[in-house]
Design a protein around this nucleic acid. Structure first.
Lengths: 199, 199
DNA sequence: GTCTATACGCCGATAGAC
DNA sequence: GTCTATCGGCGTATAGAC
């Protein structure tokens, strides 16, 4: 019964390869510059027909990536929240995660930070309204309530903190900064935290 | 001789209307979601053929916008440099300009800050290599030399400072922050400058 | 259930009448 | 020099043979 899984590539494996290839190409060239032919080729598939056995259309490939990535991010943030209490510690955990992802899974971070998702996924929630980022908003709000973070508009706090973090990571992802993200972690964390911490 | 200019719309006027319509649509929906038909319609033109009397193709419309916007930015920065000596004053001038543009010409700022230009203008220089942004890099370098700015990698300084500025402006442009950019100027400048100033 | 072959629509681009 | 009419090609998507 499980035998077929051994002999030929399982359905799930093919699907993963399509998703992986699509992620890579979207991150590299953008959604609109990537054709289904490109994806099939990069996934080691003979032609585009196969893709339609796994996904309704091109957009649904992107939608699946969106779901996978934001779900995974959301559960990572849950983990971080379970381990840490203080807002500063939780934010630090998130920053560590973002820097690690930038080095280990740059295409995921390009999808998150660089692609304009609403251009090709107009139905999906904007990034700030996803479960993961709503949680980040709550972490910031607790930090303000606890007196750890400056008492200003939480959305401004978010803009300042992640402005520094994300712009630094974007510079790494585009090659403007030439070392691994990890090399800039300590200094960037300090700067970002100082920008929002209560003096 | 100049008479025709009065009677019908001059060639230059039509061209400006096409550029203006294109800028608006690109900023709103993105380059790939905007068809030449959309542009013609928004420019009050009967059909797309007219566009081809003013531009070689769709991409050249975007290229013209790119040139116009970066040239204008570059000369504004020259003006700022002429009036101010210290790096802090020059950066403050640039921040004032960016906030003003966000309120007065949001589509220009969307073009600058939100669109992924290299997706549809692969030939053009990346933003950081344009004359305007090279000058900003030099302002930062002088600030470091003069002891006004922390002595760290200038590209990091850039990432921190404009991370805060641009991310705040993006939040305004997307509506996440609901007031005019000007309402956030004082606080945002202080935060961004503190993030890079020598203590 | 894999792949060939092809349909179909949209959009960029052009030719040519008036 | 304005606009109609149309082309051509790419890229998505499907039908159907094997």
């Amino acid at each position: 019964m499980d035998q077929e899984k051994e002999i030929t590539q399982s359905k799930a494996e093919t699907q993963d390869e399509i998703l992986l290839a699509a992620l890579k190409l979207f991150a590299e060239k953008g959604y609109f510059n990537t054709s289904l032919t490109d994806i099939a080729e990069a996934a080691g598939i003979k032609n585009t027909s196969i893709i339609y056995q796994h996904f309704k259309n091109k957009q649904m490939i992107a939608a699946q990536l969106y779901t996978d990535i934001f779900d995974s991010l959301n559960s990572s943030i849950d983990d971080i929240g379970r381990i840490n209490q203080k807002s500063s510690e939780q934010l630090r955990g998130i920053v560590d995660l973002f820097f690690k992802l930038t080095d280990d899974a740059p295409d995921v971070m390009r999808f998150l930070l660089i692609l304009k998702l609403n251009e090709f996924l107009p139905e999906e929630k904007p990034v700030l309204q996803t479960a993961a980022f709503v949680k980040i908003g709550k972490i910031i709000q607790s930090g303000i309530n606890a007196g750890e973070i400056r008492n200003i508009n939480p959305l401004l706090v978010n803009a300042y903190f992640f402005g520094i973090i994300n712009n630094t990571l974007q510079s790494v992802l585009t090659g403007a900064l030439d070392k691994k993200a990890d090399a800039y972690l300590a200094q960037t964390w300090l700067t970002a935290w100082s920008a929002i911490a209560r003096k």
